[in-house]
Every structure is written in C-alpha cells, then in structure tokens.
C-alpha cells in the first residue's frame, strides 16, 4: 500500500508542468524515502531527475517499493481538476494498475476522486557519477528564465555559450538576426539570497548548449526562487531547482562539443 498526502496540489501541478514536455511518460519510483523519477528525452540529450522526499508529505506510507508507470501529460491534465490549495492524496495498492488521486478542498466541502491507469514503461536507469564541478552559479530563477527567453526570441539563437569566470557569467548567442550576450555579475551583498547571483568557481569554464533545452528547463521556474547551474569542462550541465528542503527537480543537459 502506498499513500502520500500533499498539503497543496499546486506543487504537483508545477512539477508536472516543468517536466511533461521533456518526457511524456516515466516511472514514479516509490520507496520509504519518497517519490523519485528519472527520464531522458527521446533524443537522449537531456535528463530529468525528480525527488520528493517522504518528509514533504504528511502522512507518507510505503509498505513496499513500487514502480508506477505514468503518462505525465495525462497526469498533468488530471491535476488541473484540482484547485491550487486542494489537499492532494495519492494512493495505490501493491500490484495495482491504477493510481488514485484525491483532491480535497481546504474547507473539506468538496472531494474529487480520480483513478488513473498506469502503464508498463521500459526505462533505463542512468547512473550519474558524483562530480566536483568547476563552477556552480546560483541566480534568481526568473533571471535565468528571462535570459534564455531573450536570447532565444530576441536573437533567434540556437546555441548558447555559457562562460563562467570569477567576474561573472556570460551567456552569448549567434542567431539569424545577429549576435548578443548577457552578462551577470556576482552580487556584492547577499542580504536576499533568492535575489543574489553567487558564483562558486574552482576554475573558469566555457560550454555550449542547445538553447531550446534551457528554455524547456525554465518551465520549472515556479518551483523555486533560485536556480543553480553546475558546469565542468565537457560534462553535462546540471540545472537544479530546489523545492524548499523537501526535494528537487534537476535537469541534465549534454554539451555541444566543438568539432
């Protein structure tokens, strides 16, 4: 038996909206530690890793590990039937082929119950090695979203070069109408951590990425006020949105390599 009760349906809506365009179906892995998910996009260029720790739910019950194959787009549609502040309860029997979703209004005067069919999904689990990154940049998530959008829509760029030095982080593109760059400098004061740009750097690093994936990752912006970019030479970028202390959505993106 699996049961997980989440105080606000809104969180699950935001998570699904953040990942459903990149991966349309995935296995939710349920264990005593919580709910996790890993999936690559069909071109094997990017990967989503989700963790919702059990302590983010109250209660959380998992008698045995379960793998729930879910169509994320269908689940996102179903979650739209919940109001943002509805209490979400997910339940599944062991060996069940359905996931039950229950939405309860805060005043407890409305209860919606849905049964979602599960599917068998063959998915490879990728082992992601522990990496000491050359540079870790933390910035406001809205700023990252804005930069990706402006460089894509404004210049029509396909590839973005991200260069990180002690002075700042520079995003450059060359596109159909010309070229452009946006540089963020490290902020002096850290009175408001969520609004700060902080660069932790062991050595300067420059990498090239497909901009459209970064724009897709930015759909996770509502999940967190800040985002971190972890970069090392010739290894995948990690874009992480932390959900308070109860979990994260991480996106991995393979770099473009100079011929």
């Amino acid at each position: 038996m699996f049961e997980a009760r989440l105080a606000q349906s809104n969180l699950m809506k935001k998570i699904l909206d953040a990942i459903k365009d990149l991966i349309t179906e995935a296995n939710l892995e349920i264990s005593s530690g919580g709910i996790s998910l890993q999936g690559m996009d069909s071109s094997h260029v990017s990967l989503v890793a989700l963790l919702m720790r059990s302590d983010g739910f109250s209660p959380f019950r998992c008698d045995r590990n379960l793998t729930l194959g879910v169509n994320l787009q269908a689940m996102a549609k179903l979650m739209k039937c919940a109001s943002n502040d509805d209490i979400l309860t997910m339940t599944a029997e062991d060996n069940s082929d359905t996931l039950n979703l229950q939405f309860e209004s805060p005043a407890q005067d409305k209860l919606s119950e849905f049964e979602m069919k599960l599917m068998d999904i063959d998915s490879e689990h990728l082992g992601i090695p522990e990496t000491e990154y050359d540079a870790v940049i933390r910035m406001p998530s809205s700023e990252f979203q804005r930069i990706c959008r402006d460089l894509g829509a404004g210049i029509g760029g396909e590839s973005v070069t991200i260069a990180c030095t002690k002075e700042g982080v520079k995003f450059s593109v060359t596109g159909s109408v010309g070229s452009g760059s946006i540089t963020l400098k490290q902020t002096g004061s850290v009175d408001k951590p969520a609004e700060s740009v902080v660069i932790n750097m062991a050595q300067p690093v420059t990498l090239i990425f497909a901009l459209r994936y970064l724009n897709s990752f930015a759909k996770a912006t509502p999940l967190s006020e800040s985002v971190s970019l972890s970069m090392s030479r010739e290894v995948p970028l990690v874009v992480e949105y932390k959900m308070n202390d109860t979990g994260y959505v991480r996106f991995y993106l393979a770099p473009k390599l100079e011929d």
Partner: peptide
C-alpha cells in the same frame, strides 16, 4: 560548428 553530445556518452546504464 559544434556537435550535440548525448547523455549516453557521459552516464552509465545501471
């Protein structure tokens, strides 16, 4: 020009 890398080249299937 730059070639798009794939994650399979960086991560191992477990």
């Amino acid at each position: 020009t730059a070639t798009q890398g794939r994650l399979d080249n960086f991560f191992t299937v477990s």
